[in-house]
Write a protein that binds this DNA or RNA. Structure first.
Lengths: 121, 121
DNA sequence: CAAATCACATAGCAATACAATGTACTTTGT
DNA sequence: ACAAAGTACATTGTATTGCTATGTGATTTG
């Protein structure tokens, strides 16, 4: 009896936490491009910004490869900036293509949001 | 010049369409559970329901494996229903655990939605 | 002076949407 | 009457991507 409850609880926990990770998968790129729309940020700072804005925790092992992908895709550009003290920081900014892509993403997101809201209602 | 434009256009197209697929990745389970909350549906019908509600196209090769996963996870149950004519249909319904999971998903979704709306604003 | 934080990076794993392909029955168009 | 399209299920293999684990090295804090 207790066993059943624990089973259901843990199955549920792992499923939900896995689902959260899956939802991130799509939205993360979208969130990052939106944040970069306003300002240039370096990697570590981006993680903090996202935590502050969305309460979503992103692992560094997630962000750095993602930023490299975005650079390969020509959606962001990056430049090293030397610091007076400490390790130089790599700042990212949106490219023209990144901006255009973001517009399309925003449209799709609005549609999705509306659709889901209708279903949940 | 034209070459550049075409390059950017297609890069952008494939990136965006790929991104859409990534966004689906998380939301699809969520959408399906929400739809099953109201009614029992069979697979093919679910695809139509989703298309009607969200204008999102789902491939059959996406849906059927997904439903099997959801059944393995004990979020949905299924039963075969014979038809007077044609192939029997497999109807899906939410389990108790599916309902509970859906509640948690709804909460997470609301948070995410709010967070993104703040960022986009 | 050790621990925590800052700041970058990579390799391997797991999850999942899709394309392609297959089966089999029914309806529709000509 | 028969081909085409639609209904309804299913599987295999691929690509993408977030995460864990791990590593480097500098700086700040207790």
């Amino acid at each position: 009896m207790l066993c059943d409850l624990l089973y259901i609880y843990f199955m549920n926990e792992t499923f939900v936490s896995n689902w959260k990770s899956q939802v991130k998968k799509g939205t993360l790129t979208f969130i990052i491009l939106n944040i970069l729309k306003e300002n240039e940020y370096y990697g570590y700072e981006l993680i903090e910004q996202i935590r502050k804005h969305t309460e979503i925790e992103i692992a560094e092992g997630t962000l750095y490869p993602l930023m490299n992908r975005l650079k390969t895709e020509n959606l962001v550009d990056s430049k090293w900036v030397e610091q007076e003290t400490g390790i130089p920081r790599k700042y990212y900014c949106l490219t023209e293509m990144g901006t255009k892509t973001l517009v399309q993403m925003n449209e799709y997101w609005k549609n999705l949001e509306n659709a889901i809201q209708k279903i949940i209602k």
